[in-house]
Amino acid sequence: MNTTLMPPVAPLSRKLAGALQEKIDQKTKPPGSLGRLEQIALQAGLIQQTLQPEVRHPAIIVFAGDHGIAAEGLVNPYPQAVTAQMVYNFLNGGAAINVFCKQQQLALKIVDAGVNHIFGPHPLLTDHKIAMGTHNYLHGPAMSLDQCKLAMKAGATAVLALHQEGCNLIGFGEMGIGNTSSATLLMSCFTGRPLEDCIGSGTGCNTQQLIQKTGILQQALAHHPPMQDPLQILATYGGFEIAMICGAIQQAAALRMLVVIDGFIVTTALLAAAHMQPAVTDYCVFAHCSSEKGHQALLQHMEVQPLLMLDMRLGEGTGAAMAMPVIQNAIAFMQHMASFSSAHISNRQH
């Protein structure tokens, strides 16, 4: 049940499914021969409720935030200052996500969700800072319920701004030292899987660091009582950037946008969103399966298939950026490929 004042997300109507499938099957190819591209074309048509789906102004938003647990240097090999340093790298065009967005001609926006640093004005940067990082969930909730709701609404606002510019295909990325720990805790809480099945090396923990990280996250789970309310779970263990992505996904789905889900951390944000509004997954394409431990199990739990298997685990929305051209090609064949009748080619005999 949606208790967060997010816009309501309706399940996809399938009234056009038959006509869309007929159009796909009449293209000059054997039925099913374009594989997953045909599924994406059908999904896009259902989302946009048209036999002529299109891509307009595709974009990626990267949300950045710091985590209280990271300030103690307990769960991550990199210092917390790297979050702000990487935001500057995004703004200067030097990160992988910048390269991929430029190559694919995708708009890129960076959102300060709660970085422990004050940035000056920049045309790529939107300031939605909730606080200078979350609290340490070893001692209390990472954020209050009000902060969590504010973060979700800020994520929705960022999506709405792009939608008003014409965007209908959107992906999300994140940056935040310590956020794989948050994602691990969220996955364990939402799926009921043991922590050991969810935890991975994040930004590159060695074996000893991973043992320490596991122990600390077990302490965090033991410190808080079991919870059922998805908003409370998100507020207890999440990050401001994860909460913003959770709200952004719900807003994008409510606006009938095609939503591209990146890797492990973005998928846990979707998991929270799906516990609030189950229909959001109807609007999602899963970009890739991260090599971060837990992501494959998470995708299996959600009963979804990723488009790509590239052994990536960088984050930043890089997997979403790599998947965008695949999605664009799926919609392009639907728009422009000839049919048997228009090309005067004999269809198969029945």
Results as ranks from 00 to 15, higher is better:
1 M>H: 13
5 L>H: 15
8 P>V: 10
14 R>A: 15
14 R>W: 08
15 K>G: 10
18 G>R: 07
20 L>M: 10
26 Q>D: 15
28 T>P: 02
32 G>R: 08
37 L>F: 10
40 I>E: 08
41 A>V: 12
43 Q>I: 07
45 G>L: 10
47 I>K: 00
51 L>H: 02
52 Q>N: 14
55 V>A: 09
56 R>C: 14
60 I>Q: 04
61 I>T: 11
64 A>R: 02
80 Q>K: 13
92 N>R: 15
93 G>Q: 08
94 G>R: 08
97 I>A: 03
101 C>E: 06
103 Q>E: 15
108 L>D: 04
109 K>C: 10
110 I>W: 02
116 N>M: 06
116 N>Q: 13
117 H>I: 03
119 F>Q: 07
119 F>I: 07
123 P>H: 12
123 P>Q: 10
123 P>D: 10
130 I>L: 12
134 T>Y: 04
137 Y>R: 07
137 Y>W: 15
138 L>P: 01
138 L>N: 11
140 G>W: 09
142 A>F: 00
142 A>H: 03
168 N>E: 13
169 L>V: 05
175 M>R: 02
176 G>H: 00
178 G>V: 09
179 N>L: 02
179 N>Y: 08
181 S>G: 15
185 L>F: 05
190 F>P: 00
201 S>D: 13
209 Q>A: 12
212 Q>F: 00
212 Q>V: 07
215 G>M: 03
216 I>W: 06
219 Q>G: 13
224 H>L: 12
228 Q>L: 14
229 D>E: 15
233 I>Q: 03
234 L>P: 00
235 A>D: 11
236 T>N: 10
236 T>S: 10
237 Y>T: 08
237 Y>A: 12
247 G>R: 02
248 A>Q: 07
249 I>T: 03
249 I>P: 00
255 L>F: 03
256 R>M: 07
257 M>H: 02
266 V>M: 06
268 T>G: 08
268 T>F: 00
271 L>N: 04
272 A>I: 01
272 A>F: 01
289 C>R: 12
300 Q>E: 15
300 Q>H: 12
302 M>T: 06
303 E>K: 14
304 V>L: 05
305 Q>W: 09
305 Q>D: 12
312 M>W: 02
312 M>D: 05
320 A>G: 07
323 A>N: 01
324 M>A: 09
326 V>T: 11
343 A>D: 13
345 I>S: 01
346 S>Q: 14
346 S>E: 14
